[in-house]
Design a protein around this nucleic acid. Structure first.
Lengths: 212, 212
DNA sequence: TAGATTGTTAATCGATTAACAATC
DNA sequence: TAGATTGTTAATCGATTAACAATC
């Protein structure tokens, strides 16, 4: 697949296309036009066609898009057609919640281990996934192919752990800690900043309140 | 505070400004110029000034911005200078993780109750917060001022629960369920779609892989 | 074939950046 | 006052929408 520089706005929309196509597929819909999809998703048909044509022509004039084909092609673009091995750093509530959330597995995101520093947690399994001592991080990473490290640890420890992960050659970090991690260019980071999400909601509430 | 139409891009950046200013404040920094802040945050000084001037002039020529003042003003803009009462719908792993995450409380987001349908959970407390039966939702909402309902329930139940919340006059929903909720215009929804976040990360990984 | 709908180019719109006069 | 830095206008850049020729 050849890639131009794809804008972030486009990439953010791809998973949502994928989700809607998945639903159509479940409902047995075979084909759909950009126009019908645009109505379902409340976006413009033009945007859908532009977005998709960044990656190639997946449709057919006069017919539209084959739902199953497009669904699979977007999965390939997103890289969810392959297995992604993950480790979770931080076995607290969030780490456990993510581990227990089986939907990630269905998409090929497999959690291989949880790491923690608390003796209460080390040695315990969550859904058959072992909780290991943080001191074992380096040896574990040298022995396993891990694609993504998930950071569910407090802010103060996050950069130090990130540096260790980067030293081990980790390529991607899914960061739930509330700070901006410093990583070299070759490492990709995706942030989930829940407090910021909540503050945006709070802003919208205030906005409404003032409009009366 | 008078409000023009503020773009979503600006609103998304406000919490991050707030966070950096909070850190400066902790470090005892009294004033900062848009230029110094722009370097810390890796954005342009122009953007910082443009963003802030949507809400008023918080700086002073030749001086810059007073850190504490700006921090508090952004808090007001975001509506986090007041208390926001929340309920959590869905007492599973995520619901419990959010309940246990005390940082929200520090910002005035107070969880008043958890609602669930499982007899195993109903009646149990999480950090002194009671888990109530979903059948009590309507009566609870009529007796308490709740600003935000947090949805940590499976996709299939989310729209039905949303409809009930809307009937009770809820104004804001923080949605962790992986679907787009249908709500009337007066209700604000903020989505946290973790799978989509993970897919974006996956895309970036694939992108790197192809670049070699 | 005629109708439908894509892929793609052109036009518009909005957001970001640059520049600078105002002013502390 | 002179220097620094804002607030704000103007220029640029990028993303979205519209239009339509290509084609199934």
């Amino acid at each position: 697949m050849e890639r131009k520089e794809i804008s972030n706005a486009v990439i953010k929309r791809l998973p949502r296309y994928h989700r809607y196509l998945g639903e159509l597929l479940e409902n047995g819909v075979e084909r759909i036009s950009s126009n019908d999809l645009s109505e379902k998703m409340s976006v413009t048909a033009s945007q859908i066609r532009q977005d998709l044509n960044n990656f190639g022509g997946f449709g057919q004039q006069g017919y539209g898009y084959n739902v199953e084909y497009l669904y699979n092609e977007i999965a390939k673009i997103l890289g969810i057609d392959r297995r992604n091995n993950m480790i979770i750093i931080g076995g607290g509530n969030f780490g456990q919640a993510l581990t227990n959330y089986s939907n990630f597995e269905r998409r090929g995101f497999m959690i291989q281990a949880i790491f923690d520093i608390s003796p209460d947690r080390i040695g315990k399994n969550v859904r058959n996934i072992p909780t290991l001592d943080m001191t074992e991080l380096e040896s574990f990473l040298s022995e396993h192919e891990i694609d993504i490290a998930v950071l569910t640890i407090p802010k103060h420890a996050a950069q130090e752990v990130t540096d260790r992960l980067v030293s081990c050659g980790i390529g991607a970090i899914w960061n739930f800690a509330h700070l901006d991690l410093k990583v070299p260019d070759e490492v990709v980071v995706e942030n989930v900043h829940l407090s910021e999400s909540l503050m945006q909601l709070s802003y919208r509430i205030s906005e409404k309140r003032e409009q009366g």
